[in-house]
Design a protein around this nucleic acid. Structure first.
Length: 780
DNA sequence: CGGGAATCATT
DNA sequence: TAATGATTCCC
């Protein structure tokens, strides 16, 4: 097409396609220029074109054209600095090869003026020779020789153009335009008459147009439900343009197969009736109906013919759902109150807040919600794989076994005595294996009304054998309860790490460590939130990704630990888990931002020691564009470039001088040692300390426990590297201002009686010595 | 800039 | 006519 060596025009930066509002004339000028596609809050950019294979002056004309296969002139106007008569003309300086357009506004023509304005636009384009490449009228279109002087219009041309404008205005979509750039190079006379091939940008959609919004489901309060339907789901929806969010509440429809045996994945998506625009689908899981005890009991009595009822082949109760996501549901929606606009909602609390604070009565919803059946639904013939003879036998067997397992686990969960259970765990193991070998049914994965599987219950009730039995029986470890928790999530929240380690021994479980529950939290996050150091360790040992982000804000475990002010967890994540110290959340914040923000000297020191960057900018602008703040600032046409607005660094966030100093690289140790330690550890002789060390080394796990008891747990890993960890511990404790009295308490706590008596014996003496005050009176 | 009231148009 | 949606204008 284009010769390689000739000059040509190329779009270097496209305009941003969405989020920009076309303005009416009555709204006045100065509403900000059309941004470039890669423009961001802190770093603005604008549409830009480049004249390639050319150096020298040029003139670039920008016009608005329609978003149709054959471009027409658009009736909207380009307005702004170098704009006139609806088009923009700029001169490219010889020193530049590209040119950007920082100040393009799009003026929305009113409906009744469309044809009038369009006609003016066409006439002007024709006069100036700017009608190349756009379709007006065949007879007009052929006349597009290079123009040195404005063309005169014949009466006939005027008529043709007039009728073309009337015709075209009828079809014109006023909610979308494209930019057409045409470059003109100077001819020998210096006139810009050498026209290059025009280029047309991507379409730009008016953000104010009713259907401009991208439909998007930002979050749903639940991602699973029962096949029977009728459960409320709250959707948080985004209208892609900044911040505006809607909540939609709907009830799940019945799944078409009420006899579903295994959970099935479907999709939820928003669908706008007017233009069939749809959002990205979000997964949703339908769980089988939970058959309650009486039901099971009743069915157990029945014989063969009813088995089909149970397994899904027969036309039992429920009746088939029409399928295809039929119904239009009742959609109630509301706009969020302005006070919370622009923020992400964290956790359920907020949901509850607005849920109870506002009533969802306004029937605003212009959209509909569709449940799309995704994936391959299980065929209805799940029981035709084995003969009816087998059915008779297995059915009874299954029922019995299932009841037993359920009752064992269920009763346990309701607080029945563990002793009773333990005697049955072998039975459970056997049963689990037997059952898993049975064809057709999936009983060991069956859920109760909280969507808990036997595995969930076994973990919750901390039954080691039951967990092992279930794992050996190859249960589905991926199944989630109604909060999206797998058994691993539940284990991660426990005080002890034994369930967790048990689960993690099974390789396939490890991949669950990166799965978020419905609150967006992975097991590691849950462990941190539960202040479960041992669980954190277990997860790290088990191969969990230490830097995994939670879904809502992109926090890592280190962010969360910092946010909670939990020094030992943060230390563990850094030292043992080798966590990336400068991981960033969705808004670009590092753990050090968090620590500085909460004014925590210790955490700042820890993070700095781990190499955190105190100058890292997040995406929160450090300041906003100066309004009337500084009268001294001369406003010399700084429209040209909005300038770079920096993000906020941890240093910016420091409020106390201590934190500020630490972030500036001052040794934390220094500041603490400059202040003389309050403690009296110095009063202990080196011999005493030596004996103390021995007493500690003698006790297995002694110094580690003591370290935790003294609040120095965070340093255990560091101590461990030393040849004499106990000694290191005591030194650190002394430096940090520890007292003998608290040391004794700590030793008592860890049950090291020999060390305790050792110290209590020594403590007497120094006190006696100190009772004689020295008077060096030198009073004048 | 973005929210929203007012007004116009359509069903 | 009332209800709903689109357009325009205002702050």
């Amino acid at each position: 097409m284009r010769t390689v060596d000739g000059p040509y025009l190329r779009i270097v930066e496209q305009p941003k396609q969405r989020g920009f509002r076309f303005r009416y004339g009555c709204e006045g000028p100065s509403h900000g220029g059309l941004p470039g596609a890669s423009s961001e809050k802190n770093r603005k950019s604008y549409p830009q074109v480049k004249v390639c294979n050319y150096q020298g002056a040029a003139r670039v004309v920008v016009q608005l054209v329609t978003n149709t296969a054959e471009p027409h002139l658009h009736a909207h106007s380009l307005v702004g600095k170098q704009c006139d008569k609806g088009i923009c003309i700029v001169e490219l300086l010889p020193k530049d090869s590209s040119i950007s357009f920082p100040n393009l506004g799009i003026l929305h023509v009113t409906k009744k003026n469309v044809s009038k304005v369009l006609e003016e636009r066409m006439i002007e384009a024709y006069r100036m020779g700017y009608n190349y490449g756009i379709f007006i009228n065949p007879e007009i279109d052929v006349l597009q020789g290079e123009v040195r002087m404005p063309r005169e219009l014949t009466g006939r041309s005027v008529n043709l153009i007039s009728s073309a404008s009337i015709h075209q205005s009828k079809e014109m979509d006023l909610s979308v335009v494209r930019l057409m750039f045409t470059a003109f190079l100077p001819d020998s006379d210096g006139g810009f008459s050498r026209r290059l091939e025009p280029v047309i940008s991507d379409p730009i959609f008016d953000s104010k147009a009713p259907n401009a919004s991208n439909l998007k489901i930002v979050r749903m309060d639940r991602t699973a439900g029962c096949v029977t339907g009728g459960e409320e789901v709250y959707l948080l929806c985004d209208k892609v343009q900044k911040g505006q969010k809607f909540a939609i509440v709907f009830k799940t429809p019945k799944y078409r197969d009420q006899n579903l045996q295994k959970p099935i994945s479907v999709f939820v998506q928003l669908k706008r009736k007017s233009d069939n625009e749809t959002s990205e689908p979000k997964p949703f899981t339908y769980h089988p109906q939970i058959i309650d005890k009486e039901e099971v009991q009743r069915k157990r009595q029945k014989t063969l013919p009813n088995f089909q009822d149970y397994s899904g082949a027969g036309g039992g109760a429920g009746g088939m759902f029409r399928g295809g996501g039929g119904g239009s549901f009742i959609i109630r929606s509301l706009k969020f109150p302005p006070c919370i606009k622009g923020h992400f909602f964290q956790g359920y609390q907020t949901y509850n807040n607005f849920g109870s604070g506002y009533n969802f009565s306004s029937g605003v919803g212009g959209g509909g919600t569709t449940i799309k059946h995704g994936g391959c639904p299980r065929c209805q013939s799940s029981c035709c794989h084995y003969s009816s003879f087998d059915c008779t036998i297995t059915y009874t067997a299954i029922s019995k076994l299932y009841l037993l397992i359920c009752s064992v686990l269920d009763r346990t969960f309701r607080g029945l005595h563990l002793g009773v259970i333990h005697s049955q765990t072998d039975a459970v193991r056997n049963l689990a294996q037997v059952i898993s070998g049975l064809p057709g049914e999936d009983i060991i994965n069956m859920r109760n009304d909280l969507y808990q599987t036997p595995l969930h219950l076994a973990v919750l009730t901390q039954q080691k054998e039951a967990v092992e039995a279930l794992l050996e029986a190859d249960v589905d470890i991926t199944l989630t309860d109604r909060h999206g928790n797998t058994a691993l999530h539940l284990a991660a929240q426990q005080k002890e790490d034994n369930m967790l380690r048990l689960l993690l021994k099974y390789k396939p479980v490890v991949q669950l460590t990166s799965i978020p529950n419905t609150a967006g939290l992975c097991p590691l996050h849950l462990a941190v939130q539960a202040n479960g150091l041992s669980c954190v360790r277990a997860l790290l040992d088990g191969g969990a990704d230490v830097d995994v982000q939670e879904i809502t804000c992109g926090h890592t475990a280190l962010h969360l630990a910092t946010e909670l002010g939990n020094l030992s967890l943060a230390g563990c994540l850094l030292l043992e888990g080798n966590a990336y110290v400068d991981s960033v959340t969705y808004n670009g914040s590092t753990p050090l931002h968090v620590a500085a923000g909460r004014d925590s000297t210790k955490l700042c020191a820890l993070l700095m020691a781990a190499g955190a960057d105190p100058h890292k900018e997040n995406f929160e602008p450090l300041f906003f564009k100066e309004d009337e703040l500084c009268g001294t600032c001369e406003e010399e046409e700084e429209e040209e470039d909005e300038g770079y607005i920096p993000g906020t660094t941890p240093l910016n966030m420091a409020t106390s001088p201590e934190v500020y100093d630490i972030l500036n690289g001052e040794e934390y140790q220094l500041t603490t040692t400059v202040v003389p330690p309050q403690g009296d550890m110095k009063s202990l002789s080196s011999d005493t300390k030596q004996e103390l060390c021995q007493a500690l080394e003698g006790q297995t796990g002694g110094w580690e426990s003591l370290a935790h008891a003294l609040g120095l747990g965070i340093l255990t890993s560091a101590f461990r590297l030393s040849t004499c960890p106990a000694r290191k511990l005591l030194d650190s404790y002394e430096v940090s201002g520890g007292t003998v009295r608290e040391l004794v308490e700590g030793l008592k706590h860890v049950g090291n009686s020999s060390a305790v008596s050792l110290l209590q014996a020594m403590c007497k003496e120094p006190e006696a010595v100190h009772t004689t005050p020295q008077l060096t009176g030198n009073i004048d």
